[in-house]
Nucleic acid binder design. Structure first.
Lengths: 207, 207
DNA sequence: GAAATAGTGTCTGTTAGACAATATTTC
DNA sequence: GAAATATTGTCTAACAGACACTATTTC
């Protein structure tokens, strides 16, 4: 049976410093997405997690397969995953990697620019129609923080009243008894309800 | 560099005899999804098309990558595509394959039952939010035929007036000057407008 | 004229989107 | 009390969903 080299690449996102960031690697010279070879008996997801564990000191909070690239004459077939990383995760020392705001990514090797653009599109879709947004935040958060997250990723300003109304009506979050105090009036903290089915009930374009 | 065997499987759908059908193969004994090995220099999509051409005398009208399966200890990694096949396509003689209504598929080898279920779900999603539906019909069709297609795949009955209103409002189809005559009043024929962007503008669950 | 299929319009309830004032805290 | 942030409600336009009758053809 014919065999082919197989690579697993990961697009790692995090939210930090008021921006959406992606982890880029520069093992030789050009920048590219981190990845690792698939072991001869290894599962795909396992390889993705191994690639992440090699770079970061915290596990990912969300992992999803994106797409598999394998053009003609292109030696390795690449299975691409994307993952969301807690902002608190630290880099393993000595690795040639860097968190970069996605809007300022340098040009990338291979097809990686295209892959990053696709991953970003998918993240936005997910954000709008499912509950991935919560993966980017700590366990408890204020509605303002949540809205801020959405605004950063969607790169658009949202109306505060409408945001709150829909977010609460969806039943996907619940109030806690805690408050976050700071400047100005303290804010109620909310918590994601993993039990609430985040079913995407969108309007059909075609009936 | 480590190498792995790579398989490309295809889930082929067509609409015939008032049902949605899938092409199943039985090369040895159990039923499974057709597929083929990926050549050493071959692109993934090319392998999928080669697998289709080996079984059918017409090209597919739609091809999309579904997912890549590669569990631990599972020898070949499988990249799965799904495709839509014109009802007029004929089988290449001598191949152990059979069109089967999806609702009556026998139990399948490997993970293929799961894969088929996923492909079907994806087809339904696509149908509701994009314009794949037209791939299942001839170039010109009546609104009744179109509605019928939707009802078969979604497995639910739709309201005629609402269906027509939305389908026409979407601007994705246009009238031709032709009529289809048969029993009862002749029906206007419509045509899909590939130029009309089938953008999925659905309601956001989260603002 | 009976049978078969195509084609059409209205009403209602829900929801998205626009919009501004008040409440609670710190300094 | 000034500054900062949190919280709350209303109105309108658009749309989904329910619903029944008329029109045109063949036999």
């Amino acid at each position: 049976m014919i065999e082919r080299p197989l690579l697993v690449n990961v697009v790692l996102f995090r939210l930090a410093d008021e921006t959406l960031q992606v982890l880029l690697a520069s093992p030789v010279q050009a920048w590219e997405l981190p990845g690792s070879e698939l072991g001869s008996q290894e599962g795909l997801e396992h390889a993705a997690e191994r690639a992440i564990a090699a770079l970061l000191d915290r596990p990912k909070t969300y992992l999803e397969q994106l797409f598999t690239y394998g053009a003609e004459n292109q030696a390795p077939v690449c299975v691409v995953y994307f993952a969301i990383i807690p902002a608190e995760a630290g880099l393993v020392p000595g690795k040639p990697v860097r968190w970069t705001p996605v809007w300022q990514a340098p040009s990338l090797a291979h097809e990686h620019a295209e892959i990053l653009a696709y991953a970003l599109r998918r993240l936005r879709y997910k954000l709008e129609y499912t509950a991935v947004g919560f993966q980017l935040l700590p366990a408890e958060f204020t509605l303002s923080e949540l809205q801020h997250t959405y605004e950063i990723i969607l790169d658009e300003k949202l109306d505060k009243r409408n945001f709150r109304r829909r977010m609460l009506q969806s039943g996907i979050i619940e109030v806690t008894s805690h408050l976050r105090t700071g400047e100005g009036r303290p804010a109620r903290l909310y918590r994601y309800r993993p039990d609430a089915v985040a079913e995407v009930k969108a309007r059909r374009l075609f009936p």
